[in-house]
Design a protein around this nucleic acid. Sequence first.
DNA 1: GGTTGTATGACAGTCACATGACAAATCCGT
DNA 2: ACGGATTTGTCATGTGACTGTCATACAACC
Lengths: 224, 224
Amino acid sequence: MTAVLVIEDDDRIRLALLLALEEEGYTARGAATAEEGLRMQRSDPADYVLFDLMLPGIDGFEGIRQLRRDDDVPIVVVSARDDTHDIVAALEAGADDYVVKPVAIKELSARLRALRRRARSIAAPVAVQVIGDLEISPDAGEVRRGGQPVALTRTEFRLLCELAEHAGRVLSRQQLLQRVWGYDSGDERLVDVHVGRLRQKIEAEPGNPRHLVTLRGLGYKLQR
Amino acid sequence: MTAVLVIEDDDRIRLALLLALEEEGYTARGAATAEEGLRMQRSDPADYVLFDLMLPGIDGFEGIRQLRRDDDVPIVVVSARDDTHDIVAALEAGADDYVVKPVAIKELSARLRALRRRARSIAAPVAVQVIGDLEISPDAGEVRRGGQPVALTRTEFRLLCELAEHAGRVLSRQQLLQRVWGYDSGDERLVDVHVGRLRQKIEAEPGNPRHLVTLRGLGYKLQR
DNA sequence: GGTTGTATGACAGTCACATGACAAATCCGT
DNA sequence: ACGGATTTGTCATGTGACTGTCATACAACC
């Protein structure tokens, strides 16, 4: 689901935008100040940011500059002012597009789609994890044991990545179900089965695991 | 020097735009019809294209679609019509931005600069990629296998370039749909079909690929 | 020894992918 | 502008791999 963050201090306009965006199939959330919006974007990044210019506290221009420092997200300014100076300044600050209120939601949506085509959204490379004699490359979708590639299924791979990401810490079956399968609830035995299959492939002695150990009553962990 | 192609049938407006762009430091050239513009862009590509919508012969929408077919150049529509339908249609056709005449040259220039940040083709003329026995020249639009030229269609070529650009990394079908086709969503089977066709051409043994491998449940990757 | 929690093997339904066929769209030379 | 050739996207089908469930066997703890 594509998420949009709307930073706009006028409650009525913000709500109207949020509703219209939801109508268009986006997941929309709002912030009334630049500070709040920047915080939200840091903690839970949206795919697009809509920015008003006239905001209390940090104004839109400065907000855009700050956001651009560590985020490449497409930014569209939605402002009532149609002055060339503002448009130029906003684009110079790092905005990707500028539309003048009142804005047709269909146009806004089309502009977002146009921006999406240009977004370079391939995530930054993730480092290869080395755990014992295991090398895990989430980017390459590859796992090696002692240099030899190991063929894992999608579920096994995700499970291993999840465990590797929290290497050294116990993950409960519930946490794994949630994070690997996206299930909020479900049969915990399912995890056992997949851990077993994973062990067959990554452990020298599956019956006596060195990496992927069971913590009775707690869950599983990947030994660092 | 950054070159801009202006496709606009009204001589006065076209000349005014060309002069203003030169003033801003661009190298500007003009065409009075879409056909002429497309021919010019093919023979000597500009870095940006400005498109009018109401043109004799092939209209702007169709012109944009045809240009987009084999050119990733940033396209800005400059039109007198400010109707939402036109804006949406132009952006859907493949335009990156839409400004309404009369247009402030400073704004236009700022919008071009904003587009440059997002465009890949201008920033980095990509070198020849060598992957196994494959040589890929994104610039020349040429692919060789073991020194022999391989005839690829546009889609196949783009797909291969996209995979090559991220060689060694898995790209999901969604990522490929977005980056090769510009679709926000769509049938992922489409990717399968084109990967299959590409394999027929670049793999010695298409049924047992060495370069372009499937990662079940994850996507495809080009083996480095 | 009983109880609770975990490992493992088998199995059927489902899913993911490759491929061939086809119709629409597009290209290109005339 | 026209018609044949190419390219593109959709669909149907077949195949093999994967998944989740279950039953049973095993291990740890009291």
